[in-house]
Amino acid sequence: MRQLLMLSGKGGTGKTTLTAAFASLADSPVLADCDVDAADLHLLLQPDVKERMGFRGMELAVKDLSRCIDCGICRDSCRYDSIDENNNIIEEMCEGCAVCTIVCPEGAMRMEPRISGDAYLSVTRLGPMSHAKLFTAEEASGKLVAMVRKNASDLAESWGRDLIIIDGPPGIGCPVIASIAGVNQVCVVTEPTVSGAHDLSRVIELCRHFGVPACVVINRCDINAGKADEIAAWCDENDVEVVGRVPYDTAATASMIAQETLIEHDDAVLAPKVREVWGRLEELAYGR
């Protein structure tokens, strides 16, 4: 089984739009949306949810009011500032470490399980899909990403499919690190702006750190052709393959509104370009 992960560093460069387009072109893929705190792929693919699984995140500290003597030791020991001046637990800040339970002299603290989100196994017109929703103001997005990936592998197994295309989260932190472990190929979607270039360099460094091969797509390449060339030159110097450039076109937004992928939207400008990019990316994803 092969896994292709779409990343970007900077948000809003077109990860989800391109992920969906590639899903249209791939031969029998499984899809996974690992941007669990702001997932969007489902808006294009309209998944039919077949199974919903509660996601147990980290446990939550709970205080027994009748035992608490307001000594404040728990507050001083909590590294996440999750206990306020009145020694009440700020639930959304608690990371479930349980230190408060061992420092409390009165045994007033205990840990309780909490459901921090939902994971879904679904079917879409382009193949089976693993996705999730982290509940409002919950922690543990990395752990939920791991669950989405496990579910995607299970789907690939049961459907007999050998490619998982993963829509990744922005940034380089916890959910991205959980997304990157063990994938075969990363494709970084960037844009020709100073921010796009800066964030690209950090994601490429992250891929190196974890020993995962990465390639680059320059999206909206004509917004600043000079900057696109600079990015391509930087990639060249750093032995990163640019698998293609996709121009800016209003069709990207139009297809989103129509709930279609760029390929399904049958656009004259973007679809041929995206096919070209996929031609090379598919080879890399399969390690050819």
Binding site: A137, S141, P169
Partner: peptide, 14 residues
């Protein structure tokens, strides 16, 4: 703020 709705955003909103 960072994007998203997870821990780094909550920390920023404090």
């Amino acid at each position: 703020s960072p994007p998203g709705t997870a821990c780094p955003v909550l920390e920023t909103l404090k």
